[in-house]
Design a binder for these strands. Structure first.
Length: 502
RNA sequence: GGGUCGCUAGCUCAAUGGUAGAGCUGCGGACUUUUAAUCCGUAGGUUCGGGGUUCGAGCCCCCGGCGACCCA
């Protein structure tokens, strides 16, 4: 709780105190600083659209009532200019002159209106002598008085302030507003792409009675009504597969996953994941679909499959994407043949030689994946599918038909990080049970990411799941791939630790 | 989890261990066509918190908080 003294006017910084006094003054004048309703007749966008290309210094005779946030303010004695911006980013200039509103209203305007206020203006649509489309006010009213000064518009906000006070970031930085819109375009594009292919969007539980569908540490919460610990889901996979069993043969879900792990520029504890599953398809079929979804999203968000990042670099997502074989690539990188049968001691030595300290819970497949990340991934120049993963780290995946210890799984890398993963789904309930039991043994040995045996999921598989391919795509990471920004820029309100109070 | 760097006015940043400053913002004044308006004047500080060293700490040391980057 903030100390009570912060609410006392004497302790407020000067600029905040002055704005509060202006709020009080408005009330004294009988003008509400936060009116419920205003006589709006048009949006700023409507006025701009109707009067595009007007000559300088003309009047239209059209009377309008508009509102927007004051983002620039220029007072020149008997004529004041305020640039108003609406929520859609459109802007228009309001002019308040001695001749049009009279001395009292002009003086009040100069005395009471600040940068950041929401302002209502009624008047005639005109253009200024310099050609700026404007509303010449015959009346102005406060629409909402801003009590805190906005940051200076011409200096970039510190990264921490941008994240902590996104509402301010959105006001002063066009790129922040743009990201909010790009996210919507990408999500709409994903849904269009899948709907077009006959996929049904379904919603599965975020609160689960046991974790599953991925290997990660979960957040745990508690239901008082059921007196039961619940897990915020780490993945929707096991429920989407239940839907496949039930005969919903093409399903997808776009929703939040929660992972109780660290946060950095590519990881967020809560993130949006797309998962989709198609009966009678395999991992290669869904890889193609994944590429097409991402390419369509790139076009929807940026207009092109060749995207330009914030740092100016250009990334081509068009065409087919190369596939490399995981074990072949790692073998080539370390200069000796690596297979699922390579002894753990040998892998351990290779990993240590790469300067990586293995964790005690690591199994053979984990070592191979670490070698991939260390030696192979940094060499990728564009989107790349890494094919055919170790079986022991992929407990939900169908085995490769003629390569023991290998499963039909791929990871898609874009810009050096994992963007999506897909596989031919394991449908055999007997093998699935063996894999989950092995996972449970890992959990018993102290691996808090390993998944437990989900008996209801196994019962569903025993009913019979059609052959299927499935994919998970990190949506926040997709936005990163399209814009080159960090994950905290793609998420509107990322988790931040509370600010210290001195 | 480890290391490095940072935290100073509303915002962005300065300041050999020796009187805490600038720009923008704000406030007062001038200006009826401005576009980050301009001009004149002026105010604004718990230097993230706590402890220590010192005649003297924004600066040095210790503990803690928050953040960024790198590593695991």
């Amino acid at each position: 709780m903030p100390p009570v003294t912060e609410e006392l006017q004497d302790d407020l910084p000067e600029q905040m105190r002055i704005r509060r006094e202006k709020r009080d003054r408005l009330l004294e004048m009988g003008q509400h600083p936060y009116p419920v309703r205003l006589p709006l007749t048009h949006t700023i966008a409507q006025i701009r659209a109707a009067h595009e290309g007007l000559e300088p210094d003309v009047t239209t005779g059209e009377l309008v009532g508009i509102a927007g946030r004051v983002i620039f303010l220029r007072n020149t004695g008997k004529l004041c200019f305020a640039t108003l911006r609406a929520g859609d980013g459109t802007e228009i200039q309001a002019m308040v002159s001695l001749a049009s509103v009279g001395e009292e209203a002009l003086e009040d305007f100069k005395r009471l209106v600040d940068l950041g206020d929401h302002l209502f203006v009624h008047g005639e649509v005109i253009t200024s002598r310099r050609g700026e489309l404007s509303v010449m006010a015959d009346e102005w009213r406060m629409a909402s008085k801003s009590l805190r000064p906005l940051p200076v518009a011409h200096k970039p906000l510190s990264e921490e302030t941008r994240v902590r006070q996104r509402y301010v970031d959105l006001i002063v930085r066009p790129e922040a507003r743009e990201m909010a819109r790009i996210r919507v375009l990408v999500l709409a594009s994903i849904r269009r792409s899948l709907a077009k292919r006959g996929y049904l969007e379904i919603e599965t539980p975020l609160l689960q009675t046991q974790q599953g569908g991925a290997t990660a540490r979960p957040f745990i919460t508690h239901s008082h009504a059921f007196d039961l610990d619940l897990y915020l889901r780490i993945a929707p996979e096991l429920f989407l597969k239940r839907a496949l069993v039930g005969g919903l043969e093409r399903v997808f879900e776009v929703n939040r996953n929660f992972r109780n792990e660290g946060a950095d520029s590519t990881h967020s504890p809560e993130y949006v994941a797309l998962e989709f599953y198609a009966a009678y398809e395999d991992y290669r079929d869904v890889a193609r679909t994944t590429r097409e979804i991402i390419q369509a999203a790139a076009v929807a968000a940026t207009g092109s499959m060749v995207v330009t990042h914030a740092d100016g670099s250009v990334h081509d997502l068009s065409g087919e994407w190369p596939e490399i074989d995981l074990f072949e690539a790692v073998s080539a990188a370390v200069g000796r043949d690596i297979t699922p049968a390579t002894p753990l001691e040998e892998l351990d030595a290779l990993v240590r030689a790469a300067g990586i300290e293995p964790a005690p819970t690591w199994i053979a497949g984990k070592y191979v994946e670490e070698l991939l990340e260390h030696y192979v991934v940094p060499g990728f120049t564009g989107p790349t599918f890494v094919m055919n993963y170790p079986e022991d780290t992929s407990p939900l995946t169908r085995q490769h038909p003629d390569r023991p210890g290998v499963v039909e799984k791929w990871d898609l890398y874009i810009n050096g990080y994992e963007q999506a993963t897909g596989y031919s789904e394991l449908a055999d309930p007997v093998i699935q049970r063996e894999r989950l039991v092995a996972q449970a043994e890992l959990a018993d040995r102290g691996d808090d990411e390993a998944m437990p045996v989900d008996e209801d999921f196994l019962r569903a598989l025993e009913i019979g799941m059609p052959p299927a391919g499935g994919v998970g795509v990190g949506v926040d990471r997709l936005l990163m791939s399209l814009t080159g920004l960090g994950i905290r820029e793609t998420i509107l309100f990322p988790l931040v630790k509370p600010e210290a109070r001195g």
